[in-house]
Amino acid sequence: MEPVTLTVNGATRRLFVPPQRTLLETVREDLGLTGTKHGCELGECGACTVLIDGVPILSCLTLTVNATDCEIVTIEGIGSMTEPHPLQRSFGEHGAAQCGYCTPAMILTAKALLDRDPNPSEETIAEAIAGNMCRCTGYLSILSAVAAVTEENQ
């Protein structure tokens, strides 16, 4: 067991984890934040994306011990049912979630993009989410949902 200190959604968490524990397992099982999903656990689908120091990272390929002292944000950390993040509202309004399984990761990836580039072009949005698989929507509604919350369109 290794001691690690993480900041997760603003709160400092001190944990002991086996060295092989992935951040995906830590977030979902040790911290109970099940909004982070998984579709492969091999780095192929993007469903497990979380933000580490503002950058979208595949949590299934990240060892928890390597995230020590990092700032981690999961879907639970960006908004709630009563106070949703504009992206969370926009995804619903544009029909950008069908089964909803890719949605948390998709929203986090889009948030990271908008945080560094508040007015991305459609191509830039597409490139940013190209590593996130969605099997339901065909992506077009996701592109619209993200485009609707750029600074220009707000």
Binding site: G35, T36, G79, M81, Q88, R89, G92, G100, T103, P104
Partner: peptide, 11 residues
């Protein structure tokens, strides 16, 4: 929107 849209988008 779907009736469960916000539940989906907030994880």
């Amino acid at each position: 929107p779907r009736v469960d849209a916000l539940a989906q988008a907030t994880g």
